[in-house]
Structures are given as structure tokens and as C-alpha cells.
Write a protein that binds this DNA or RNA. Structure first.
Length: 155
DNA sequence: CTCGGAAATT
DNA sequence: AATTTCCGAG
């Protein structure tokens, strides 16, 4: 199966997302970047290591500076009043979608369900043991990879 | 802080 | 549909 990759990839991240990873034009959901796209994007950037970073188990990350992550998210979505309270509510909506879950007992710590993630270039790859290699090694600079979470009616 | 309902927004 | 906003409960 071939995927078409839009030219509206996230800025400077080197990550390309397939067209369908974005929502259609105006109505449902808007085509703006999804929060989890954004989180992965920040996790990619060395310069944000003191703000958000992979830590602990595979797929687990810690938001070291909640206010800054919220500020950046607000900047991206043009929501100047964004804060961690609201951003975290959005993250909690991912629990039922199986995109994320909370690492209980660890403050500001969440974990991606990489079993649900798909690396578009390597659709058959078992993500169980490769989320990191994907996130930390293959993305650096080269716009060769795309990933998304398996949704109900996709694939 | 974390969770999840409810209503509003885009 | 995916948040954003607001908020009471644990």
C-alpha cells in the first residue's frame, strides 16, 4: 500500500506525516496538528530535553516543565491561554483511545501505547521492540519516516 | 496532581 | 471529531 505524503509536514522536525494523519479541511477536528503528534515532535528535539523527554520504560516520557509544554502547545494552536490543566485533560482523552496511558505514581509521566503505533515506512515491523529506535534514531534530520496510531477504520 | 463529566469551540 | 474550557471529587 502506498501512502501519499503531504507537503505540510511539521516544521523542521524532519517528520513526515501521511495526508490522512491530518483532519480534513474545516469541519470535523480541523486539520491542525494533533496533540500526540506535537508531543512526539517535541520529544524529537534535543533542545527540549529539559522540557519533555523520554524516560523510564519504552514509550514513557516525562513532562519536566509542564508550563513550557503548555505554552508551546498554545503557541502552535494559537491558544494563548493554554495551560497544563487543559493540556492534560486533552491527554486524558487519549486514554480511552488507547494512544496514551498514565504511569501511575509518577508525576507528569505518561506512556505511549506503541503497540498501536505504525511506522508507515515499515508497516509490518513489530513496534513492540522498536518505538525508540524509531523516535530517537531514525528521525534525526531525515524526512523518511511517518507514524500514526491505528484508528478504528484505518488500514 | 490526577481523573473524568459536561458544555463550548473550531 | 479533537480538543478547549471549567470544575468538583479523590
Amino acid at each position: 500500500t502506498h501512502q501519499s505524503f503531504g507537503q505540510r509536514s511539521p516544521p523542521a522536525s524532519g517528520i513526515a506525516f501521511p495526508d490522512w494523519a491530518y483532519k480534513p479541511e474545516s469541519s470535523p477536528g480541523s486539520r491542525q496538528i494533533q496533540l500526540w503528534h506535537f508531543i512526539l515532535e517535541l520529544l524529537q528535539k534535543e533542545e527540549y530535553n529539559s522540557v519533555i523527554a523520554w524516560q523510564g520504560d519504552y514509550g514513557e516520557f516525562v513532562i519536566k516543565d509542564p508550563d513550557e509544554v503548555a505554552r508551546q502547545w498554545g503557541l502552535r494552536k494559537c491558544k494563548p491561554h493554554m495551560n497544563y490543566d487543559k493540556l492534560s485533560r486533552a491527554l486524558r482523552y487519549y486514554y480511552n483511545k488507547r494512544i496514551l496511558h498514565k504511569t501511575k505514581g509518577k508525576r507528569f509521566t505518561y506512556k505511549f501505547n506503541f503497540s498501536k503505533v505504525v511506522l508507515v515506512n515499515y508497516p509490518l515491523l513489530d513496534m513492540a521492540n522498536s518505538p525508540f529506535f524509531l523516535a530517537q534514531n531514525h528521525f534525526n534530520g531525515s524526512p523518511c519516516c511517518a507514524l500514526t496510531f491505528l484508528q478504528e477504520n484505518e488500514w
